[in-house]
Design a binder for these strands. Structure first.
Lengths: 169, 169
DNA sequence: TATTGTTATACTCTATAACTATA
DNA sequence: TATAGTTATAGAGTATAACAATA
């Protein structure tokens, strides 16, 4: 019954404030951005992330597994999104030549066109919502702190070795 | 075709870094927290937010509309979640006495019990993932900046008055 | 008329497990 | 055996529009 792992029973006010503000900021931002992407290009946020990632790689190409990193949390989820993008002609999928198990996903010209169509509004949304109330130095500070946190999270193993709570219900 | 709203065609490296770090940090954090909440108490993140909000109000009670604020983005979505929580006996829904149109949602003892069961692991997850790599002053800075952004976003009207992009497809 | 909430419905997305094929 | 990816399937969540009731 006792968890006896954490000695800290609660967070202090500052921690709570940081946590809530982080969650709500990202939630509001994501909601707004998602709407803009949907209206301007019929893209979900995940699809946009995948396209944008591809657009940034050499040759506009990446292996499925490498694409997933940080964007999608299951293999089948990535397959689903890749198929969706392929049906719309925004990417192609071809077997990799060096490793026959792998699939190379490549962004098409149409894919790049959709990206281009969506970018201005995307940046505008970020400017209006995220950056407007922040100074140059705020943004730098934010980037530094959050980058540190993100890198830490990436390293931290998924807590599958957790206390193994008895499944309620 | 031209949007001619924003003169800035792109973001600088710092802005991009802040944006990506924000999105990825919150995404990783939310994914981890969601898993913990699911395992420890069978709660989705939204459900946890609703319960926690209720737990913090006087009498553990709030009107449906007030509950929605910042958590859920459509009326029907809130109804759905409230019904789910009610079926599990974690909240009750009773017609409001002062305004017959309103519904008062109240957290039950079972609801509070689930919250209590879930809290320690929740806090532990936050400590391990979000706060571990941050100093006291980092957390204070983060809270200050993100609170400012969040308040700004709350004020900023939904961009429904936007350029009215022609619906593709 | 405006507001509060529900319902019906359709759709998107995600995750698990079983499976195939290659390394 | 381990890795890369797909499929089937089921479930959770979301949003829109039509609706009813109260203010």
């Amino acid at each position: 019954m006792a968890r006896m792992t954490s000695p800290s029973p609660s967070l202090d006010a500052t921690q709570l404030g940081a946590y809530f503000a982080l969650i709500e900021t990202s939630s509001l931002l994501r909601h707004a951005v998602e709407q803009q992407l949907r209206e301007a290009g019929g893209l979900s946020y995940v699809q946009f992330q995948l396209l944008a990632t591809l657009g940034d790689t050499a040759g506009g190409r990446a292996r499925m597994t490498d694409l997933a990193d940080g964007v999608v949390y299951s293999r089948s989820g990535l397959t689903y999104q890749a198929q969706t993008l392929e049906k719309r002609g925004l990417v192609t999928r071809t077997p990799s030549t060096d490793d026959e198990r792998s699939i190379d996903v490549t962004i098409t010209d149409d894919g790049r066109a959709v990206l281009a169509k969506v970018f201005p509004g995307h940046i505008e949304t970020l400017g209006d919502l995220l950056f407007a109330p922040l100074s140059r130095s705020d943004i730098e500070t934010l980037a530094e702190i959050l980058t540190r946190t993100r890198d830490h999270m990436r390293q931290t193993p998924p807590r599958s070795a957790a206390p193994r709570a008895r499944k309620s219900r």
